[in-house]
């Protein structure tokens, strides 16, 4: 009970902090808000990425949206486990295929079957390179095969990597935008490589053009 309340308050505090820092603003696709149940897949450059997506989603969409995150990172300490599990209600997956005890795609499918939405970062890890995006892992495809009926929504998070670059511990306030693309689905007979390439292109298309980009 107290744990739940603390978690609720912590989530509100974290979201208010993220808003104060970034004035985060959603840019919706012309077709309107995403469907109630969606798999949001986004570029990943900061630990704050899913907080920002969460912060811009309207409450009725946010309510049942759970981020997918690496178990080994979030279970490192009691505090991060509390934030990961209780505050964000994250679906914690084991990333190392050798050591894993549960299949991540199974875990995510179970959550989708409960009616929840997912936020996932198909690059698998934070992008700290000069490239705009890392190649996608195949999880998104396997998930789309299991639940082809659920819409996949590309989401580009802009500028958050400048707010807190790797190795810094003081964030700087900068305006961030979260751009939602057109919901997509796995096509009949689409191969894994074709689908992944299409998903990558859909996400990259939402990033600001290189002329506007601040190097």
């Amino acid at each position: 009970m107290i744990r739940d309340l603390t978690a609720k308050l912590a989530s509100i505090a974290i979201m208010m902090f993220a808003r104060a820092l970034t004035a985060a603003r959603a840019i919706w696709h012309e077709t309107g808000l995403p469907p109630k149940q969606s798999i949001y897949f986004a570029n990943h450059s900061s630990h704050g990425d899913f907080v920002l997506i969460w912060a811009v989603l309207p409450p009725w969409l946010r309510e049942r949206t759970r981020p997918v995150a690496g178990a080994e990172y979030w279970l490192k300490s009691k505090l991060s486990a509390f934030i990961g599990r209780d505050v964000f209600d994250a679906v914690l997956i084991e990333r190392d295929p050798e050591a894993r005890t549960q299949d991540p795609v199974e875990q995510m499918t179970t959550v989708l079957n409960d009616g929840s939405s997912l936020i996932l970062f198909p690059e698998g890890t934070r992008n700290q390179t000069e490239a705009r995006m890392l190649p996608f892992k195949s999880g998104l495809y396997h998930l789309a095969c299991k639940r082809p009926d659920v819409a996949l929504v590309p989401v580009w998070i802009n500028n958050l990597n400048r707010v807190m670059p790797k190795g810094e511990f003081v964030p700087i306030p900068l305006i961030c935008t979260v751009t939602f693309g057109e919901p997509m689905r796995l096509k009949a007979q689409e191969t894994k490589d074709e689908f992944i390439a299409r998903a990558e292109a859909a996400l990259l298309a939402l990033s600001p053009s290189s002329t506007e980009d601040n190097a």
């Binding site: 003081v170 700087i172 306030p173 900068l174 601040n214 190097a215």
Partner: peptide, 27 residues
């Protein structure tokens, strides 16, 4: 001032090396 500075810094050329200077400007 805070909100204006946030808008301004968002539009300028910054690099990793400016992080502390910008944090100092704000805080």
């Amino acid at each position: 001032s805070f909100a204006a500075l946030r808008e301004f810094i968002t539009l300028i050329n910054t690099r990793r090396g400016d992080h502390w200077a910008i944090a100092a400007a704000f805080f």
